Simulated assay, not measured.
Amino acid sequence: MEDDRTKYPQTGSGDGELQQDRPHSARMYDYYLGGKTNYAVDREAAQEVTRHFPGISTVARVNRAFMHRSARYLASQCGIRQFIDIGTGIPTAPNLHEVAQEAAPDARVVYVDSDPIVLVYADGLLNSSPQGATTYVEGDVTDPGSVLAAIEESGYLDLNRPVGLSLHALLHFVPDDRDPYGIVRTLLNRLAPGSYLSLSHCTPDFDPAAWAAIVNVYTAAGTPTQVRSRAEVLRFFDGLTLTDPGLVVAHRWRPEAASGPSLVTDTQVSLYAGVAQKP
């Protein structure tokens, strides 16, 4: 496999915290979704990923669709009125709060991200319904204690009441040496009984060679990446009760008529997704 480290500088070149001189995972994701908040360096890396795995834009779109369905499900069928979305990324309408507040206008949402590029565009996350509320706090998922402290300090949520915790397309950017399972446990331990975890995670199960190449592209660009098998993703739900249909390829999680499983294959999606409740 080609070593991509020669393509992307491993230190900044004066472009500041936004790292405009090297690919950025949030801007690459924006490119996959057809957005315009990206630079030539992001498009070059994203096109390299696409060369290895032509369905990467499908992965991104299916992940967004899962986020919409899970937020709608939690708000409309599970009575959740508080949401935490960690690893928010660049806003792309409809955002989680817009979906949740369409089902429950009084829903309150706290977005969390550590990337400066997301902060630049965070205004798109703050157009709450009059009855609800949204805010954005800076926080790094690899420091869950600080994330929880920032959320509590914001005063937007009552963590003694159930919360919907969204970790969508995030934990494959947390390698095992950063203790991703411990991070999830720390977050869930602080949440009230009856809270839910909504999670999606890329997998190499259906095309190992392509995903090994994708991991190489991201890691070379400065974003350590580790995709995981179904069994490894399932571990994130230890101690929780998965809702039907369990942990499945994302397009198979409660599909709606316009996005049914027949439209894409498991290999094209390569993303596991599930929603589970804390007892």
Results as ranks from 00 to 15, higher is better:
141 V>Y: 03
175 P>D: 07
148 L>T: 13
113 D>L: 10
170 L>Y: 10
183 I>K: 13
162 P>A: 05
182 G>M: 04
170 L>C: 09
136 Y>K: 04
120 V>T: 15
174 V>D: 14
175 P>R: 08
140 D>P: 01
183 I>V: 15
136 Y>V: 06
113 D>A: 11
184 V>N: 14
177 D>F: 13
99 V>K: 12
153 E>G: 09
120 V>R: 15
138 E>Q: 09
139 G>W: 08
146 S>R: 14
114 S>K: 15
168 H>C: 10
120 V>E: 15
185 R>F: 11
170 L>P: 06
135 T>L: 03
134 T>G: 06
129 S>I: 01
120 V>I: 04
146 S>Q: 11
186 T>S: 15
131 Q>F: 10
109 V>R: 07
122 A>G: 08
136 Y>P: 04
115 D>E: 14
108 R>I: 04
130 P>S: 14
111 Y>W: 02
127 N>F: 03
151 I>E: 00
113 D>Q: 08
135 T>A: 03
107 A>M: 12
103 A>H: 10
152 E>N: 03
149 A>R: 15
164 G>V: 06
110 V>W: 00
167 L>V: 02
167 L>K: 04
100 A>D: 11
101 Q>T: 06
156 Y>G: 01
101 Q>G: 09
151 I>L: 00
112 V>Q: 12
165 L>E: 12
106 D>I: 03
127 N>K: 11
151 I>P: 03
158 D>L: 05
136 Y>M: 13
110 V>F: 00
110 V>I: 12
136 Y>W: 11
177 D>I: 07
115 D>V: 01
123 D>K: 11
182 G>Y: 02
134 T>C: 13
132 G>Q: 05
106 D>P: 01
147 V>E: 02
102 E>V: 00
127 N>I: 00
113 D>V: 08
119 L>P: 01
138 E>A: 08
143 D>H: 15
146 S>T: 11
131 Q>C: 11
126 L>R: 07
105 P>L: 13
150 A>M: 00
161 R>E: 13
139 G>A: 10
130 P>F: 15
117 I>W: 07
173 F>K: 14
185 R>M: 05
102 E>M: 14
108 R>W: 03
126 L>K: 09
125 L>G: 02
182 G>T: 06
144 P>V: 11
116 P>E: 08
185 R>P: 05
182 G>S: 05
180 P>L: 07
183 I>M: 14
147 V>Y: 07
166 S>K: 02
166 S>Y: 01
166 S>N: 11
181 Y>P: 08
126 L>W: 00
183 I>S: 14
143 D>P: 04
136 Y>H: 05
117 I>P: 06
174 V>F: 15
150 A>R: 13
179 D>I: 09
155 G>R: 04
152 E>D: 14
116 P>T: 04
179 D>L: 08
154 S>E: 01
100 A>N: 12
171 L>V: 07
151 I>R: 02
131 Q>H: 14
140 D>L: 03
146 S>D: 08
100 A>M: 09
163 V>S: 07
171 L>M: 15
152 E>F: 00
102 E>F: 07
125 L>W: 05
113 D>T: 05
122 A>R: 15
176 D>W: 03
182 G>E: 07
155 G>K: 02
156 Y>Q: 10
122 A>C: 12
177 D>V: 11
157 L>E: 01
177 D>S: 12
117 I>T: 14
104 A>T: 06
111 Y>F: 12
141 V>E: 03
